[in-house]
Design a protein around this nucleic acid. Structure first.
Lengths: 201, 201, 201, 201
DNA sequence: CATGAATGAGTTTTCATTCAT
DNA sequence: CATGAATGAAAACTCATTCAT
């Protein structure tokens, strides 16, 4: 009675990972039992073990999947020709909405990362990659004369990312979404104006 | 351990909370067993149940204890007469060092907060209080002529807090501490200069 | 694998039994999974169930197969015209080598035999048959004047078999192979000389 | 509700080992579940895990316990002043009775020994020890003039042990107990007479 | 017939909680 | 009050067996 997938083994694995991601994100690693995932997928526990040798193993692959998904998203968002677009409140709102869904996941990720070097490296690598992406985009804008030739991209980038994450976190901890958005609008603008050539604005 | 002293019970409870805090912070809620806590305190498991009716209950009281401790700390750090002091790299370094120790705790807190309104309100309240603290301090500096009368304190405050948290988070995720510190130095200064009266600098 | 040949089914069954024997002997009943056998044979698990209704059923048929094989071997070894040939160290060496390969099998066999009368009878019958074989061979040698007319074959036979099995067992338990061989050489010779007519020696 | 033992922790562990030995011997390692043992002892599964971190661990300690018990027994049996006592049929009968109880245990022991060097060494060491015991006893008898000065103890010992084990094994496989006893009586006597000084007989 | 994905019952293991001492 | 042995409910994991393709 092949239920996970009628066609391809890879698809089956992928389906489990997606269901796993859904449940792990919703409930966190420890609150999630294999039964939960199996049920979410409408499949028996045993089926999962056909594809993943342990809960940890599944969790790692789920993390990998999520990191990969995030990577794509980061790219698609940054790459706009008007740098000030980033400072829009809509940008943060979207980020917040997404984060609220991923909520409880981040910490488990930390936990595991603390004990798993591969994972730690993977995350660090993602951070770097996302930075390089941004840097090369900025380089293009510099050539277009939209961004100052001597701007310190690194500080701007780290500042924006930290601000974004910190604001999202503040919302988790009870801050008003509108306050967060307003703060983003002002501070992100301040950071970007610092590196943008006047007449673009 | 004087068994007849009336505050004994309170003391014992407090000692359990402190040991609990140590272990929960180190290992996170789910990785921590009652045995771990009992062992850390050199006491029997049963003794803990004399003071707390469940692991959850203990955890809540530990959170309360930590939030309280953080409150004190926030205050002691902000209250300096030179606002630019905050922009120093030492400030962030201290924050990072502290956060690295509390690492795995935050997320469990999120988890519980998601399901516990009291806790959620408590955290939100802490956030507000910490803001009011800052605001009243700034008010004083305004009166001293050190900060512009028309400065929007709210945005500055939220921006600083978010930046701090976001940078700490980036370090968790593998960013260089020195990069984080440099970013803090520049962005925090930028935010503060915006509200500071020139000649103070 | 000619699918139309009438003996196909028998052949397939036989091949599964042989693969099963290999794996059961190597790993023992409980350590062996149907997957192990299927893999050893390069066939799917389902295929096995086409021929055997359960793991137990397969195991019984494997036992039958092995007992049958052993029967042949017993015969081929005993039937030499010089009785003293048995007392040679080479004889035991061969036995040991074989037993070391069959190692873990014997016990499972015991287990099953303990609960399965058919099997128990089967084994007992084998033991008897092997004895009759020996006895009739000895009878021939008596007629040839090589063995004393009044020799108690039964004791000699049981003694030799027990000695052989006991020595093999001692090797399992860590005894030196050379010690075992030496012991066999001396004790087997002692037993045989007791029934052999002098001048043969 | 301390049920395993009202007094001492060591006693509790010992009781579990004894119950474990009983059940493992009766059913073999794989047929035995932790529930079986817990039930045999009238205790919950969890209790066992307080003393042994896994089923394997418990099994190893049970083996150790049984080996130790066997050691004592070996000694008590060998040490008689009349060497021919060993050749009595009663001797083997006792051995057989005991072995029939330990039946299914031996093979599991083999299995584990195959994968566990410590255990393998332990068993080999027992075999050696038991031999040294015998040798030193024989030495005493030599000095008493009861055994020939130039007798090869090693062969006699190994022969007797192998014979004993092989005969027990044959009983398992269906041989008559009376046949086994008779064989023991004759062959053991033959082996002993070979090294005994005439007039003792 | 053959396949191998899926099932589900059974087993080991963990741990918060209780309670006799 | 303190202890820690015992409990038992829950979770992870295994594997013989089935069955749709």
């Amino acid at each position: 009675m092949p239920k996970v997938v009628p066609e391809y083994k890879e698809t089956a694995k992928q389906r489990i990972i997606e269901a796993g991601a859904r449940v792990f994100i919703e409930r966190g690693y420890y609150r999630t039992s294999m039964d939960n995932i199996a049920e979410a997928l409408g499949v028996s526990k045993g089926a999962i073990y056909q594809y993943f040798k342990s809960k940890q193993q599944l969790f790692f692959e789920v993390i990998e999947f999520i990191l990969e998904a995030q990577k794509d998203e980061v790219m698609s968002i940054i790459l706009s020709d008007n740098p000030m677009h980033i400072a829009s409140e809509e940008f943060l709102e979207m980020k917040i909405r997404r984060a609220l869904q991923t909520r409880s996941f981040g910490l488990d990720l930390f936990f595991e990362a603390a004990r798993n070097e591969t994972l730690r490296n993977r995350m660090s690598e993602m951070y770097d990659m996302s930075y390089r992406e941004f840097a090369s985009h900025v380089e293009r804008l510099k050539n277009q004369g939209k961004i100052k030739k001597d701007a310190d991209v690194s500080v701007t980038w780290r500042g924006l990312v930290a601000l974004r994450d910190g604001l999202i976190s503040s919302v988790f901890f009870g801050a008003d979404v509108s306050d967060a958005k307003k703060t983003w609008g002002k501070v992100a603008a301040m950071l970007l104006k610092d590196i943008i050539v006047r007449n673009i604005e």
